[in-house]
Design a binder for these strands. Structure first.
Lengths: 215, 215
DNA sequence: AAAATTAAAAATGTATACATTTTATAACCT
DNA sequence: AGGTTATAAAATGTATACATTTTTAATTTT
């Protein structure tokens, strides 16, 4: 693996953004980051452009980048798009789903069941793996990549769902219902469940964000 | 302007891809491009990652990038996504559209009318400006950026529509109908027109691509 | 004293040089 | 001879050095 160093740096900076170890709404300078992470500015630049594309950073005027504040409108847009696009790819995927994929999806759900006390971001990653596992069956790379990018952007917001105490449980129930509908080739029902699943998550998220912004 | 050089290089390489001055389905090497365009590999790398994000280039195995062949499936996915997302942003935009924006949109349409004999890519750019002009009124940057990215990816395929001789004319008729519906605040009608407009363009494109691939 | 202009400092973009990884070539073994 | 390992060549990633641009601060002007 050649890009191991670069990837580690990427993970490190992303983690530092997530856990508030880097200042929000402040211009981040390549030079600062370069000394902070003890690498030259070249790999820093690479990581910054990648993180900008993924929504973790935004341009800050003409020069430099900053960590954008969480935005209820952004969250709403992301979930709105997912609400429309994910049923679309599910529609293409269901006819091609075989038992191997179903088994894999079930495995992931069981992993989520056993992750109740683990890291919130690991749960988020497992959640994406479940969705991705099903969507990949559609063999629609362009559609898939856009959806993957939306999930990536959503991951900044993960942690707000969990404020709803029983959200993980509700979410898992919907996952199992979805899997059953897929197993039975009930395309319309599966799409409905999925759309409601995303819509619900979006609403919880947005309401928590709005609540937070009032204080 | 600081990034003028970088931007010129970006435009130049993109143009060379578009006009087949660079080999298709072949690994492009940074070193080669570096000597070809007479700059160091650093700005080349920047442009390559940008073009990869925009769909003009794709990873080629573990190392290097290549110009991906046009794909009917990709085109279908892009237009499918646009079909669902653009009516969405239009829905948010219509209530906020004022006469200034309507005037601006009309100006762009008249420019398109006068561009019948001009460059196909200029026509494509004007087409995007018309859509963008309306969508920006929605003030939904996240949704807007995703749609903009889809248009960007679609621009690789522009030129196939024009094989349909009277396509520009049909397309313009739909643009004017859309603008009228927006002016009259007929939200549902406007959304229908827009969806049909995109769907039609997608179908023409895909059918031409499929036709081409049979030979 | 406030605004504007100019000069200095800091930050980014780019070139060159070096390190590491990948790919291609050739030698070797069974 | 075919396949495998070792070696050389080429390509990419990264560090350092330099050029350009932007920002800051200070001086000047009204």
């Amino acid at each position: 693996m050649e890009k191991q160093h670069a990837n580690r740096l990427y993970q490190q900076i992303k983690g530092d953004i997530l856990d508030n170890r880097l200042p929000v709404a402040t211009a981040l300078k390549q030079t600062e980051l370069s000394t902070r992470y003890e690498v030259s500015r070249i790999p820093i630049r690479d990581v910054l452009t990648r993180l900008k594309n993924e929504g973790w950073l935004a341009d800050c005027g003409k020069r430099g980048v900053m960590i954008p504040a969480l935005s209820a409108t952004e969250a709403e847009d992301l979930y709105l798009m997912r609400m429309y696009l994910e049923p679309l790819i599910l529609n293409h995927g269901i006819p091609k789903i075989n038992n191997q994929i179903l088994g894999q999806a079930q495995d992931i759900l069981e992993q989520i069941d056993q992750s109740k006390n683990s890291n919130i971001h690991q749960q988020g990653e497992l959640n994406w793996q479940f969705h991705a596992c099903i969507y990949q069956a559609a063999e629609r790379p362009t559609l898939f990549n856009t959806i993957a990018s939306l999930h990536q952007q959503c991951s900044r917001y993960i942690g707000y769902h969990s404020l709803e105490l029983d959200y993980l449980e509700t979410s898992q129930q919907e996952h199992y219902q979805l899997l059953t509908a897929i197993k039975n080739k009930q395309i319309t029902k599966a799409k409905q469940i999925l759309k409601a699943h995303i819509s619900e998550a979006g609403e919880i998220l947005v309401s928590h964000l709005l609540q937070k912004m009032q204080f």
